[in-house]
Design a binder for these strands. Structure first.
Lengths: 157, 157
DNA sequence: TTTACTGCAAAGGGTTTGCAACATG
DNA sequence: CATGTTGCAAACCCTTTGCAGTAAA
């Protein structure tokens, strides 16, 4: 989530400390490969595909390691998978870590996914409306996803 | 979208007429296989996976035909793909055809997807809030997707 | 010195495509 | 009879897994 937010607060180290703590909780280590993934996710201003993550991690991490580490990070509550409209899995840091609730702009044409944050009043009315959704008996909501689907600037040209 | 709505209004024939018109528009025929898919989608009260659609179409349609037909129906604006949290594509009739805007309950554990309709006032405040999202320059929103992610009744037990 | 992690290669599994046969306008 | 459609099988491609070797606690 937008590197400048980490820079500004000078909390990059805190981020890594948080990640390490979360990994410890599930008895996993914070290896260089995992750190590289977290760095890549922290520097991006949008969810990254596994291909992008493999490319972004210095000496390219092998597929298997990348996928396994993303799975570990997901289970530890560090990363979250984001579904777009194409066949690629995307990942972003969990909002618990970034402290920034946001939504996505998803392009129907190329599948690109962008982050977008709603002004606080808008977010509040959204949350309010979500709470009023008549969910079926027994369903236990944990989170929601609210995305705008459309055509991105590049594809609209 | 919920068979009783079609029964009540007696508009199943209208549905097929609409579908045929839309297919014609993209120079495609309304074959029995495609009609079987539309029937299956119209009778379901939730998005169906391709596996479910293959099973639902009388003398089981082959994979290739099913996928190709779903693609055609999608391009014709008849069906829409729905992304859950698992690896299966799901399809539903487009809201333009059903006239029923709705959202989804998605189970993190088993991937099941259920339809849910919001009361009109809730829907209006949702739409209102969506319009206020500060979308990036050039992005052209077409629709939105609002899903509740959680644990379904079966998996919660 | 046990347990976690890596990296290569191969296998999985949903989806797509080539191609010959068929059906429809 | 020209074009769209089907069905079989194979190919595709993202993702997962087996396994032997390595590293951290």
């Amino acid at each position: 989530m937008q590197i400048y937010s980490w820079y500004r607060a000078g909390v990059v180290d805190d981020l890594h400390a948080l990640v390490e703590a979360r990994l410890r909780r599930v008895e996993q280590r914070y290896t260089p490969g995992r750190r590289a993934l977290v760095d890549a996710l922290a520097e991006a201003d949008r969810p990254l595909t596994t291909a992008e993550l493999m490319a972004a991690t210095g000496p390219r991490l092998p597929q298997s390691t990348t996928y396994r580490n993303l799975s570990v990070l997901e289970q530890a509550g560090v990363a979250r998978i984001v579904f777009g409209t194409d066949e690629y899995s995307r990942f972003e840091l969990s909002e618990e870590l970034t402290g920034r609730h946001h939504h996505h702009l998803v392009c129907l044409s190329c599948g690109a996914v962008e982050d977008v944050e709603a002004p606080s009043p808008v977010e509040q009315s959204l949350a309010e409306a979500m709470r009023k959704l008549p969910i079926s008996t027994g369903f236990r909501p944990e989170t929601h996803r609210l995305d705008l689907i459309g055509t991105c600037a590049t594809c609209a040209r």
